[in-house]
């Protein structure tokens, strides 16, 4: 039997198979399901194990992995949820999944030394900041930091803005809520704009000191221009 035929049957539960080959279909399904459960624990908790399993079952057939490196499998899951009709009653769900995906990306991102206080003090407004490869900006219209933090238990912690920055001071990434204007400021920096340009895009109430302090404490700025 040619691999094309077997491969097609692996992702299709209704496709006939040699009896024992179904053991492999079962393993494929369960191992990919386990990868998605490990990648999106809070999303799963919020929708419940059964709903998540049903959703993931459909997702993994439509978007099977394209690489044997599974640590980031699920990059399409947030956009899949966006168009997944049964999840429309939870409009924040795609952004919450995007936050979880970004946490994993941050965990596996390259290690670069943080900028020194001396080098940082010498920066001028015409310069751009080199942000850490482990920094992730997740922009949302929903309080996803609070939703992620509460994990379905108790009231949501209060929060000013809805954008989130993920920082990894050591090996463990942590999401932080950004104050109003923080999202647009970091988005400009990530595009390579200078500090001055990035600042000009922010509202007058923007607290630059608070955001810079957050970035420096979280090793969000690295050495080099």
């Amino acid at each position: 039997m040619k691999q094309t035929k077997l491969a097609a049957a692996l992702l299709d539960p209704d496709s006939p198979l040699p009896a024992r080959f179904a053991i492999h279909r079962n393993t494929v399904f369960h191992s990919l399901m386990a990868a998605l459960e490990a990648g999106f624990p809070v999303t799963r908790r919020l929708v419940g194990a059964d709903f998540f399993a049903e959703t993931a079952r459909i997702f993994l057939r439509q978007h099977p992995p394209r690489s044997p490196v599974l640590m980031l499998y699920g990059v399409d899951f947030p956009s899949f949820l966006q168009g997944f009709a049964p999840a429309q009653s939870l409009p924040y769900l795609p952004d919450l999944a995007a936050l979880e995906q970004a946490l994993r990306e941050s965990y596996h991102a390259a290690d670069l030394p943080a900028i020194t206080a001396e080098a940082f003090a010498k920066l001028t407004p015409v310069q751009s900041l080199r942000l850490s490869p482990a920094l992730r900006l997740v922009r949302s219209d929903w309080p996803i930091w609070a939703i992620w933090t509460a994990k379905g238990e108790g009231p949501l912690p209060p929060v000013d803005g809805t954008d989130v920055v993920i920082l990894r001071p050591g090996f463990d990434p942590l999401p932080h809520p950004l104050p109003c204007g923080g999202g647009v400021f970091l988005a400009s920096l990530l595009e390579g704009q200078s500090l001055g340009q990035a600042l000009s895009d922010t509202p007058t109430t923007f607290n630059l000191t608070a955001v810079l302090t957050l970035l420096l404490r979280g090793n969000g700025v690295v050495c080099g221009a």
């Binding site: 691999q3 094309t4 491969a7 992702l11 080959f21 393993t27 191992s31 099977p64 044997p68 599974l70």
Partner: peptide
């Protein structure tokens, strides 16, 4: 074998 036509199956699949 574990992949076919760009899809990764995450299992060690048998061959004749």
């Amino acid at each position: 074998w574990s992949s076919h036509a760009g899809v990764w199956f995450n299992d060690l699949l048998p061959l004749p």
